[in-house]
């Protein structure tokens, strides 16, 4: 009977198995890990803000000294104040007081990272401690006025970027944001490094705590290209906002000359880019003039100074197609 019993059981099992059916459904359940990067909430400093017009720039001083009204297109528009060393901190308190009185938003550029420009520590802060001191002083100088700070152009993008610099920048971001300011880390421009590479560096440099990043600082890539690049990068760093420097990109980048490697320096063809404005495009906080228009790129391209050069300014104004013809003509005739 055992054989029969076995067949009985087998038969019932088979019938049951046929009824149950076969096939399995894929497991699509998601259990997202807690994010290992906590992004600080965005403050949107440019929302409903007016940009502060700096009346104490090199351009304004030259204009006053030479009575050059043709420089008005530049001097009447907001631009950022660069703080290239602790000496530059002196004028900050008066600026922020004036900005606060007028209810406007000042934009500063901190440009004092150790080994700035990869010049073997000849430029920038001598060491991290000095840089920390500089930051502390900057915070003190800014006081209670919430400002926008562009942090260290060319610092994260430099060839000599390393983990130490990243940590330093992260500390700087923390120090500034905890004091109530909005920090935009410089991210380079669209024709230099890939968004992925910059994103990795920015993440190491504390972008999670910052408001966002700055694109095209002191460069001339078109706004469209910079916006595209910035969008890509924004997605990789937690959808941070970004600002684009449109001070000198009205004519786009100078054509690439394989024979020279300094065609970027004071090119003949350059123009003022879009005027500083708050924008409402996705992730683009504002278009700003971060690099002072008219300031020379260096001792090249026919210039012998790092400071304001009227030739550069007149080139910029004359070629800016969005300016009225009269202003352009005035600049043209002035040079």
């Amino acid at each position: 009977m055992t054989g029969r019993y076995r067949r009985l059981v087998a038969g019932m099992v088979t019938i049951a198995a046929l009824g149950v059916g076969c096939g399995r459904q894929p497991d699509t359940s998601l259990h997202p890990d807690p994010p290992n990067i906590r992004y600080a909430p965005l403050r949107h400093p440019f929302h409903d803000a007016t940009l502060y017009v700096d009346t104490n720039t090199a351009t304004t001083r030259w204009q006053k000294a030479h009575g050059a009204d043709w420089l008005d297109p530049i001097t009447s528009r907001p631009q950022a104040r660069w703080i290239n060393s602790p000496r530059d901190l002196a004028g900050v308190p008066r600026m922020v007081t004036r900005a606060k009185d007028r209810g406007e938003l000042p934009v500063f550029v901190a440009y004092y990272i150790p080994n700035r420009g990869c010049t073997d520590f000849k430029q920038g802060a001598p060491d991290a401690a000095a840089y920390d001191a500089y930051l502390r002083d900057l915070v003190d100088a800014l006081g209670a006025v919430s400002s926008v700070i562009v942090l260290e152009p060319d610092a994260a993008t430099a060839d000599c970027y390393n983990a130490g610099r990243g940590k330093l920048l992260a500390r700087a971001v923390k120090a500034l944001t905890s004091a109530g300011h909005s920090v935009y880390l410089d991210a380079g421009h669209s024709r230099w490094r890939s968004p992925g590479e910059i994103a990795t560096r920015l993440l190491q440099s504390g972008i999670a705590d910052a408001e966002g990043f700055a694109v095209n600082v002191a460069n001339r890539q078109t706004t469209t290209d910079s916006y595209r690049w910035g969008l890509e990068l924004s997605d990789l760093v937690g959808d941070r906002d970004f600002i684009i420097d449109t001070s000198r990109n009205g004519s786009g980048p100078p054509p690439d000359d394989p024979g020279r490697d300094d065609e970027w320096c004071n090119p003949r063809r350059q123009a003022l880019g879009a005027p500083p404005q708050i924008t409402h495009r996705p992730h683009l906080a504002a278009l700003l003039w971060i690099k002072a228009p008219g300031e020379s790129d260096g001792k090249c391209g026919g210039e012998h100074t790092y400071l304001f050069s009227p030739t550069q300014a007149s080139n910029l104004i004359a070629a800016a197609r969005w300016l009225p013809q009269a202003e352009r003509a005035a600049a043209r005739s002035a040079s």
């Binding site: 992925g196 590479e197 990795t200 993440l203 890509e232 990789l236």
Partner: peptide, 10 residues
């Protein structure tokens, strides 16, 4: 792949 990595973050 190489191109995509340029636009990606780990």
């Amino acid at each position: 792949l190489v191109e995509a990595r340029k636009h990606a973050v780990a």
